[in-house]
């Protein structure tokens, strides 16, 4: 098979990088899901078990991971809504605006989370 041996500049446009963000965030979320469900499943063993898990998440590393997860979820949400609009609504010539808008909204959600995370800590 024939691949460009130089810089793959055919990818140098926002829609491709929006795809990369969507795929990477989707993959990370899919891998995180079983862990998330398993952790919430601690509630089966009663309030104490859930609380001991939550206590563990109060360290800075867990909080950083939480923030990244919220950001990934926001990226996948806003990017996904953009893709649904692209596929199921009449074509809009403003694709780059849509990509910028979805990225901006995701960052905003991430910041809002950080702000609230700091509010009670």
């Amino acid at each position: 098979m024939n691949r460009p041996t130089r810089a793959q500049s055919h990818r140098a446009h926002p829609a491709f990088w929006a795809f990369v963000a969507h795929r990477a965030s989707g993959l990370a979320l899919a891998l995180f899901l079983p862990v998330h469900f398993w952790a919430l499943g601690q509630a089966i063993h009663g309030e104490a078990a859930l609380e001991s898990f939550l206590a563990w998440t109060r360290n800075p590393i867990a909080k950083a991971a939480e923030t990244i997860l919220v950001l990934l979820l926001a990226i996948h949400l806003t990017g996904g809504l953009r893709i649904l609009a692209l596929e199921f609504l009449p074509w809009s010539p403003r694709q780059k605006t849509a990509i910028a808008g979805s990225a901006g909204a995701a960052v905003l959600i991430g910041l809002l989370f950080l702000l609230n995370l700091g509010a009670g800590a």
């Binding site: 309030e47 919220v70 809002l112 989370f113 609230n116 509010a119 009670g120």
Partner: peptide, 15 residues
């Protein structure tokens, strides 16, 4: 996401 952003204010407890 809205629930998360709201619920983390003041920290999460199991109760």
């Amino acid at each position: 996401l809205a629930t998360i952003v709201y619920a983390v204010r003041g920290g999460l407890t199991a109760a």
